[in-house]
Design a protein around this nucleic acid. Structure first.
Lengths: 231, 231
DNA sequence: CATTGTATCATTGTATACAATAATACCGAT
DNA sequence: ATCGGTATTATTGTATACAATGATACAATG
């Protein structure tokens, strides 16, 4: 769940533009004109402006006063950096989750890894990715840290595209799920240090996988899939 | 330097409200009415709305659609969490800084620790705090990671009040500066692992100090100082 | 021909007007 | 007196109007 609601015009516009940036529809350095966007989305300039201001704060857009709004987006460097930060924070988060998780959350995690196993077997990587998203979301919530949850949801969303592609590579979905299982086990056994180390390694092994296949390749493939879909 | 400019009305309004929240002028759960703020700040509702939307994204304000904007602010829990995250990330940042720092930045760091030593001796903690801010800012910039810099600047700013109070406690300024010196030394000797460990420990020792004096006490004292100043 | 100044146009910044929604007060029925 | 419902008011959501700023084209000048 995101901070900004999807129901107000502004919320819709915000998500629309953000997805446009993350998906590459709006290219790096491209100027985002308020009027153009407003027409495209069938709204007035006001909600567009508000959305652009929010995107500025997220660092996805750069606003030069009295001049215009320009797409910043995420560079490959940014993605590597996010993974590096995540590898540390995901560990901290898992440690906290071990200490604060509720029985309901444990149950959902357990169901999650079972379901993911099933879909991985079937080769349904879209479902696997959604379950992966949810698995981590639960950990973020279970950490009982607003700050952590906020930060990690953002990061996780930022790298969604490359994550999706990574999970679709040979054997990665199963491997990833095996790691999820180990993390859950550590949590159930109330071993915070072990959960931390495992979550840390889990992210590192994702990074390893992305590097094996090449970040650039994965992003390109993702772009192609997107384009195919939209035609 | 912040993302949002100080020069446009919106930028001013954004910073004004944010400081109001961080300083405790606007209390937890207080409703922030667009009209009231607009009048207070002598502007129309438009820039106020934009600023509130940005603050929502930062998590400092919660907006309930069609209802209103409410102060969330930072709880003590949030502050501890920020320090925990920072303790890991500050290390990573120092490591990266070691690998990417420029001679100019090294020079400024060197001057920074000398000046800070001087002001600590004189007991001018306002200056010490500003130099501390700058010291870390340089490391963030030197990391050459936009993501890292963005995140850390925010965190550092969020805890500015408690940081200021911590630095004013018996002996902490000198101790902190000694740690800065060691970090700089590790950077100059191009020892990324050592810089990482030192930066990590530096944050932990700040946390330790805050805990010794009591976070609550420091925040209260800060509130009092603030009130005195504004009278 | 390059350069500078100026007029025109495009775009953003801010204010205001109007619409939609939620909160409140009031009134009547039971 | 209390509960429900309706009218009124307050507040936010969106659209538009106008002002300010920056970009562009073109002519005058050297």
């Amino acid at each position: 769940m995101d901070i900004s609601d999807n129901y107000s015009l502004r919320g819709r516009v915000f998500h629309e533009i953000r997805e446009g940036i993350l998906s590459g529809k709006y290219k790096q350095r491209e100027e985002l004109k308020e009027n153009t966007l407003a027409h495209e989305l069938g709204v007035s300039r006001t909600p567009v402006r508000e959305a652009l201001r929010q995107l500025e704060l997220e660092g996805l857009v750069r606003i030069i006063p009295n001049k215009g709004a320009y797409v910043i987006g995420l560079t490959e460097q940014d993605i590597w950096d996010i993974y590096a930060a995540r590898s540390m924070l995901e560990g901290l988060c898992a440690r906290w989750a071990t200490e604060h998780i509720t029985p309901e959350q444990k149950k959902e995690l357990a169901e999650n890894v079972e379901l993911a196993e099933f879909y991985a077997q079937k080769g349904n990587y879209t479902q696997v990715c959604e379950l992966d998203t949810r698995f981590h979301e639960i950990l973020y919530q279970a950490s009982k840290s607003r700050i952590m949850e906020h930060m990690m949801l953002n990061f996780h969303h930022y790298v969604e595209r490359v994550r999706r592609m990574s999970l679709a590579t040979e054997g990665r979905a199963k491997e990833s799920n095996k790691e999820h299982r180990l993390i859950l086990q550590a949590i159930e056994e109330k071993k915070p240090e072990r959960a931390e180390e495992l979550a840390h390694q889990h992210v590192l092994s994702t990074v390893q996988n992305i590097d094996n296949y090449g970040l650039k390749n994965l992003l390109e493939a993702s772009g192609k899939a997107e384009r195919k879909e939209s035609v």
